[in-house]
């Protein structure tokens, strides 16, 4: 583990200047592309989004957070297209009165995003994108197809 500790009288410039007086916590999370995928070295991850639906699903998550925690603001950037190893693919900033709700909201946001926001990735190895298998266990139960009792296959639906 690397650590960096600074004790300084200078302002901490990373704190957003627009924060209001009642806010005491700013949580910032960066998701960074790892150098391996499924145990193999990669050069980058290519992200594809269904952008219209992704925006809508993010808005639903933001609303759920607003209804649960006294969060003042959320800023989120998710990269699309190719993101090189060691670059951030995701940045989330949550501002709230206290650290507990800021961390909780940030965790909730990312967990919900990984379950519901239509963004997919392909590992890029030496210029060739390859499919990264989705993890079925991430699929929320309410969105899974019901088991059995499927209608007989037909080119023309019911």
């Amino acid at each position: 583990m690397k650590t960096q500790l600074t004790l300084s009288p200078e302002p901490i410039t990373e704190v957003p200047p627009a924060i209001s007086d009642g806010m005491g916590a700013v949580v910032v999370f960066h998701g960074v592309v790892r150098g391996t995928e499924d145990g193999e070295s990669i050069a980058a991850i290519h992200y594809e989004a269904n952008e219209t639906m992704a925006r809508h699903q993010f808005e639903l998550i933001f609303t759920a957070i607003e209804n649960q925690w006294p969060v003042e603001s959320i800023r989120l950037v998710h990269r699309v297209g190719e993101v090189a190893v060691n670059e951030a693919s995701l940045r989330v900033e949550v501002i709230a009165p206290h650290r507990a709700e800021a961390f909780a909201a940030c965790q909730f946001l990312i967990a919900e995003m990984k379950a519901k926001v239509p963004i997919w990735k392909r590992a890029v190895r030496e210029g060739h994108a390859v499919r990264v298998h989705g993890r079925a266990q991430r699929v929320p139960t309410q969105f899974q197809s019901p088991q059995g009792n499927d209608p007989s296959p037909s080119r023309r639906a019911k």
Partner: peptide, 28 residues
């Protein structure tokens, strides 16, 4: 999904609906 919302298998479709089918999402 139908439009921009997830739906379950019992959702009744309407003329002109736009359905999206996709694998588990992988953002982040």
């Amino acid at each position: 999904a139908v439009g921009v919302d997830y739906q379950t298998d019992d959702f009744v479709l309407s003329d002109g609906d736009e359905i999206s089918l996709f694998p588990p999402v992988q953002g982040g």
